[in-house]
Amino acid sequence: MRIDAKTGVRVGVLAVAVLALAAVYLFTNVPGSLAYALRIRGLALGAMAVVAVAVGASTVIFHTITGNRVLTPSIMGFDSFYMLVSTVVVFVSGGVAFLRADATVMWGIQVAVMVAFATLLFTWLFGGKRRSLHLMLLVGIVLGTFFRALTEWLQRMLDPLDFQILSDTAFASMTRPDPTLLALSAAVVVLACAATVALLRTLDVLALGRETAVGLGVNHRRVVLILFVLISVMVAASTALVGPILFFGLIVANLAYSLAGTFRHRWTVPTAALLGLGSLLAGQIILERVFGFGSSLSVIIEFAGGLFFLYLVLRKGAR
C-alpha cells in the first residue's frame, strides 16, 4: 500500500509534466496561424504518442517474458526486416512508384509481414520446448545480419534516385506523419493496449519466473504466445508509421522501473509510455527551438539509447 501510494504520486507528477510539455510544444513559439501550427503539431504529437506507448509497453512486456532487462523486442531484427521489406518493394516496383503508392497499402504490407515474421520467430524460439533466450538472441542477430546483407545487395543494384528515396525511410521520423497511417497505427496500438490491460496482473506473476508462474496456475505457454503477438503488433505498427527505432525502449523501460519503484505492471507500463512521450516531446522542443534543425530527433535518441545500452551491459559485466 505504502509503495503504491508513493508510486502513484510519482506517476501523477510525471503525467502532469508530460501534459505541460505537450502544451508547450503545441501552443508556444507559433510563427503564423495557430490553427495551422496546431494541425501540424497535433499530428506530430499523435505520432510521438503512438510510438511512445507502443515502444514503452512492448519493451516492458518483453523484459518480463524474457526475464532480462537489457534487451528490446527489436533485437529480433525488426529494423533490418523493415528495411528489407521497403527495399524489396522499391526494387520490384521502382522508387517513384514507391512514393506514389498508396501509403496505406505500404503500411498494411509492412505491419502484416512484420507481425507474421516476429510471431513466428518468437513462438518458434521461445514458446516451444527449448525456450532459450540465448538461442533467440543468436538467431535474431544472425537473421538481422542476413537481412542487412540482402538489403545492401539489393540496394547496390538500385537506381541512384531510387536509392535516395529509400534512404529517407531508414531513420525514424515523427514530425510529418501521414494522417491516415497515424489513425490506423493509433487504432492498432490502442487495441493491443486494451488486450494488455486484461493481462497486467498475469504479467506480475510472470515476473516471478516460469516455474513459479505455472505453479500459480498461469497457462504460461498460451499467455506468452498472446503477449508475443501483442508485442509484435505494437512494434510493427510503430515501425511502419515512423520507421525503425532500436534503443529508445531500453532507456524508457529501465527509467520506468527506477521511477515507479515497483514491479507491478499496472504502474511500470504506463510509466514507460509516459516517459517515452515526455522524452520525445522534450527532445523535439529542444531540437526545434534551441538548435533550430527540424527532423532528426530519432538520431539523437538512438545515440543516447546506444550509450545507455553500453552502460547497462558494462555495469552487468562489472558485477
Binding site: R201, A207, L216
Partner: peptide
C-alpha cells in the same frame, strides 16, 4: 502447490508481495 528448489525471483518484491501471489489462483 509446488515449490521448486532454489526458487528465486529477479523482480524486487517484498515478503508481502510474494505471499499475496499465493492467492493468484
Amino acid at each position: 502447490a509446488v515449490l521448486r528448489q532454489d526458487a528465486h525471483v529477479t523482480a524486487r518484491l517484498t515478503v508481502m508481495d510474494l505471499v499475496e501471489f499465493g492467492r493468484f489462483p
